[in-house]
Structures are given as C-alpha cells and as structure tokens.
Amino acid sequence: MHSKNFNFWKEAFERKQVDIYTLAQMTGINGEITQDEFQEITGMNYIPDTSTNKVNFVSTADIVKELAATKIANTQKDNQIKVLSKQVMENKLISLQKDNQIKIMMQTIMNNKLQLMKLENK
C-alpha cells in the first residue's frame, strides 16, 4: 500500500516535472512518500545523512552488483581454503606414511643389528 501522494510524485518524476533532489525533499519523516517509495520511483536508495542534513543516492543495481561481487569473491576464497585444506590433509597423510616407513626401516635396522650382535657372540 502506497502513501496517498505516491502516484502524484511518481508521475511527476516520470514526466520530469521534478528531479531526484525535489523528490528527496518529499521523502522521509516529514515527506509525502516513504524511502521505499522513493526507491521504487527512482531506482536509487534514499540514504539520509543526518550529520549534514543531505541525502545520498545509491543505485540499487550498484548495491546488488557489489553484493554479488562480494559473494563471488567469498565463494572463491572458500574454494581456495577447501583446496588448501585438502592439500594440507594430503601432505599430512603422506608425512604419516613416510614416518611409518621410517619406523619400519628403523625396526629392520635394529633387528639386523641385533642379529649381527648375536652372530658376533657365537
């Protein structure tokens, strides 16, 4: 449901009888249209700056593009983390296998030494 003057301001903007700045003055707490209606009419987000009593306009499409780009970048980072984690796990497994091989070799060496010692004592 739109405010009672929504259609008037929408038509005035579409006919270029008012510009975005005039429409911004009609938006907000004391305005005739809401911030959502401003966005619907102009395609821009209405962002009041209370420190300067000015209004900033941000394209909704730009916000969506930036959010999408951020999401893509985060997904790519997540994928890189998964790949690196897999590599770390594979390296850890290889390292454990090598440690096990070293352990087996050490046992073989110890057994050989023990046999040599037995042979020397005979």
Rank of each mutant, 00 (worst) to 15 (best):
E11Y: 06
G28W: 01
N45G: 00
D78V: 05
Q80I: 05
L119I: 07
M1R: 12
S51D: 08
N56A: 08
K82E: 13
A68I: 06
M110L: 12
I109H: 08
T42H: 04
M44K: 11
N91H: 05
K82G: 02
K118V: 10
K122I: 11
G43V: 10
N7W: 06
L23W: 06
V58N: 07
S85N: 14
V58W: 06
K4V: 12
D78R: 15
K86S: 07
Q17E: 15
T50W: 03
Q35C: 09
T70K: 15
G43S: 06
A68R: 14
Y21K: 08
A24P: 06
S51Y: 04
A24M: 05
D36H: 10
I29C: 02
Y21P: 00
Q39I: 03
D62T: 11
Q25P: 00
A73N: 14
L84K: 11
D49R: 08
T42Q: 03
Y21F: 13
K86L: 09
T70G: 08
N53M: 04
F8R: 12
I29L: 13
I20S: 02
M44P: 02
F6G: 02
M117Q: 14
I102P: 00
T60Y: 07
E32Y: 08
S95D: 10
V88F: 05
I41Q: 08
R15K: 15
V18L: 06
A73H: 11
M117T: 11
T108D: 12
Q39S: 15
M44E: 13
Q107Y: 03
M106E: 14
V83W: 02
I33G: 05
M110C: 09
I20M: 07
S3H: 08
I104V: 15
V58T: 10
G43D: 07
D49V: 10
M110V: 08
G43I: 03
T52W: 02
K82S: 11
E40P: 04
N56Q: 13
K86V: 01
F13P: 04
T22W: 06
I102N: 03
N79M: 12
K113F: 01
N100S: 09
D78E: 15
P48N: 05
D19R: 02
V58M: 12
L116Y: 07
T70H: 13
N121K: 14
K82T: 11
D78Y: 12
Q87K: 14
E32I: 01
A68C: 05
S85T: 13
N53W: 01
M26K: 13
N7I: 08
I41V: 07
P48C: 08
S95V: 00
F38M: 04
G43P: 07
Q17Y: 01
V55C: 03
T70Q: 15
M106W: 03
L96H: 04
S51Q: 11
T42I: 02
V83H: 04
N121P: 00
L23A: 02
L93D: 09
G31C: 02
E120Q: 13
K10R: 15
F38T: 01
